[in-house]
Design a protein around this nucleic acid. Sequence first.
DNA 1: CCCATCAAAGTGTCAGACGATTGGCGTCGT
DNA 2: ACGACGCCAATCGTCTGACACTTTGATGGG
Lengths: 233, 233
Amino acid sequence: MTGPAYAVLAGNIRARIVSGELAPGERLPNEQELSAEFGVGRSTVREALRSLASQDLIQTTRGVAGGSFVSVPTAAHLSAHLETGVALMAAAERVTVGQLMSLRHLLEVPAAGEAARHRTDEQLEDLRRAEFDPATAVGEATYAANQDFHLVLLRASGNPLLEVITAPLFRVLATRFGRDHAPDGFWACVADDHAELHDLVAARDADGAVTAMRRHLDHLTGAYQQMDRLSRG
Amino acid sequence: MTGPAYAVLAGNIRARIVSGELAPGERLPNEQELSAEFGVGRSTVREALRSLASQDLIQTTRGVAGGSFVSVPTAAHLSAHLETGVALMAAAERVTVGQLMSLRHLLEVPAAGEAARHRTDEQLEDLRRAEFDPATAVGEATYAANQDFHLVLLRASGNPLLEVITAPLFRVLATRFGRDHAPDGFWACVADDHAELHDLVAARDADGAVTAMRRHLDHLTGAYQQMDRLSRG
DNA sequence: CCCATCAAAGTGTCAGACGATTGGCGTCGT
DNA sequence: ACGACGCCAATCGTCTGACACTTTGATGGG
């Protein structure tokens, strides 16, 4: 009830959305109507709407059929928000590389097992496409492929939330260390690990995939912590 | 570069913040200066600022020493955002109760072990305070205490991110099922499990805590899925 | 020395106007 | 009859200017 009018209005509408009173896809009254309904100026209404839009609770379009529509946040939205937040917490040194990697262990090791159990042939193909040859691939493409491989594996696990909360973790690590000079043989090792994981997932060997992922993440942890020490002096 | 001016401006400032060019605590130019600097009206500037504020990237205060200040999102901020997002995904039936609980297993079971190893006496005291007596406690207080117990345990694990990503999961479950009629003996069972966990953490018995947490989450999973089936008919 | 009062710097809010975009509808030509 | 074209209305996007409210610090009187 307190605070600036735009915050009150945003809170009011947000409450209506999360409670389900406003269904996804539903259209909000236009800005003039909201302005009249709540007895505030249109600028105030717009500030409230921008607030909601940046949380992916609404989507606004122009034109005669335009307006603000209630929207369900997608996995990608949540993931992106979480990524910037985690990145800033990491930059503020409130989260260490070891903590990020230990979470990846908790999540990705079991995920590899689930992926081996539940993967479809299509997902297996996606996984193959995300592999790379360290001899020919260079630069940005390598980092992107590396991320894609883990992303596809998470997706194949069948639990969409797993992807939402894990992807930000390795994306933060990748942008943090992507441009640093990796130890000799690092990318070759990564390519080997990925190839092994691909084969185990192809063979639906859940136990093997779990073990391989654990070893792979250990490799990454070692390399990242080495780079971290170097960059800190 | 495309899109509405407020989005461009917000993206510009956001980039400066995440890149570290604008340090936490630093003050942005005031609205008039931003308006002049970017050649847009003040309303546009304000819409961009509301956008950033709702992502906890800036904080705005009034008064002569007021303005917009770069702020690092806290664990609570991230957690809250994630919670609304997960809640909406769950409401849209894109995430099941089983998937939420299986993530809790992945995260909270090892967290219980870490908490047993690293807990301080103070955290143990917090844990004790979060217990409740099912015979005397009633209603909302019970749900809140139940959540607090898990929250304190996660915090004691020593990895702040663990709390950030796990808390939204059980908060969503709690608000989803908190008001439903729980099976007979459910709360007594929860209280027993919590008491056992408390004792094991007090004794620094990591293996025991892991086992007890696994069992506790199994109890919760059973109860939640039963309530879920009932509520869906 | 303390307290009340005031000035200054900002954000918060409003009203009104006009531009930009989009989708529908009617018109016109074929 | 049908398709292309262009106009029109609805809605958001943006600007301007004004004033109110909040907070801090300075100032002056008791």
